[in-house]
């Protein structure tokens, strides 16, 4: 244990903290998808990690389509036009996958009033199917003899290997916070995450659809009697979760730059943890949980060594749940006041 590494020097302390906040913002955006679906259906959508993963591929494909495969290092400003297109593509892709999930893996079960556990298993199955489908994309392309035409996208024989955005975005320092040089990429990641979180919060609290979501979350049967189309509400919930995952995927690709067919798994586990930590079913809790998890991971890495960072994060989760079993802000989506 090395407390000095974290607290011995204010610069290092800020460095660890800001680094954690940036990644925590990405956790938070993914956590929204878990928390929304849980709030409405009391169901953990384990396939949400794949919704995110498809978004990261959409970003890389957009860059390959608009830029080509030549390796390049661009500043954020130069990459911005393509990034915005990639953001739209990723949000569309993730939303489409989320809607597909709802249609194929959930709605048939919900219509038959199946127990929640069955839906959970269906979610895990869908998660595997989606991840493996991405890992076999070269095979699908070869069935229709497009594998050579689409070689840059399907990566023949390398479909399961790491897949990089050809344009790596070179951050530029804006100002120093202690020893940490806060870059334009960091600022965009955090601001975008906060802005999206705020917009979603407004959507749920202020709009007609938001009221429908809250109504279904509180009492699906009464909501149906009052004329709320609960199928539509569930669809919108998945759609919104998918859009947020697509945005998270764009931010992730901006910061990290490469992905692979199983990239969603670890991030999904972390985002789910963040959602539970903040109080699953609570939007603001997802934000708090995400940022807290990101920061605690970095502090844990500093004090105990990086190999302990997951241990620190999960011990923290256990402690929080012992004291507050419903999470830090354990208020359900349905109880949120308008």
């Amino acid at each position: 244990m090395d407390l000095g590494a974290l607290f011995g020097n204010l610069n290092n302390f800020l460095d660890f903290t800001v680094g954690g906040l940036v990644f925590g913002a990405i956790y938070a955006l993914i956590a929204l998808g878990y928390t929304m679906v849980y709030g409405v259906l009391q169901l953990i959508n384990f396939a949400h990690s794949e919704v995110f993963m498809y978004g990261t591929f959409a970003v890389a494909w957009t860059f390959i389509l608009l830029h080509g495969t030549g390796d390049a290092s661009w500043s954020l400003g130069r990459a911005l036009p393509i990034l915005l297109v990639a953001l739209v593509a990723a949000m569309l892709m993730s939303a489409a996958i989320a809607l597909l999930l709802e249609r194929v893996a959930y709605r048939p079960l919900i219509n038959k009033n199946a127990p929640k556990l069955i839906a959970l298993i269906s979610a895990i199955g869908a998660s595997f199917a989606l991840a493996e489908a991405m890992g076999l994309r070269d095979r699908f392309a070869s069935w229709v003899h497009l594998d050579h035409k689409l070689a840059n996208y399907v990566a023949p024989d390398k479909a399961r290997d790491v897949y990089s955005n050809p344009v790596s975005i070179q951050p530029h320092g804006l100002f120093h916070l202690g020893g940490y040089e806060v870059t334009d990429v960091d600022v965009v990641v955090i601001v975008a995450a906060l802005a999206m979180m705020f917009a979603l919060d407004m959507f749920v609290r202020r709009t007609r659809f938001g009221r429908g979501i809250r109504a279904v979350a509180q009492d699906p049967e009464s909501a149906a009697l009052m004329g709320v189309n609960s199928t539509r509400v569930v669809q919108v919930t998945f759609l919104v979760g998918g859009l947020m995952a697509g945005a998270a995927a764009t931010l992730y690709m901006m910061k990290i730059g490469s992905t692979r067919q199983n990239a969603g798994f670890i991030l999904g586990v972390k985002a789910f943890t963040a959602a539970v930590m903040g109080g699953i079913g609570n939007l603001r809790g997802a934000l708090l949980g995400g940022l807290l998890l990101g920061v605690m991971e970095n502090w844990g890495s500093a004090v105990f060594g990086s190999e302990w960072k997951d241990v620190v994060a999960f011990v923290l989760l256990v402690l929080i749940l012992l004291v507050r079993p419903s999470g830090l802000l354990g208020e359900a989506l349905g109880k949120a006041r308008a």
């Binding site: 680094g19 798994f265 670890i266």
Partner: peptide, 15 residues
Amino acid sequence: DQISKGQTDMSAVVT
């Protein structure tokens, strides 16, 4: 220091 396989955020190690 030791990272883990599949880790993508290296900010703690970098610091």
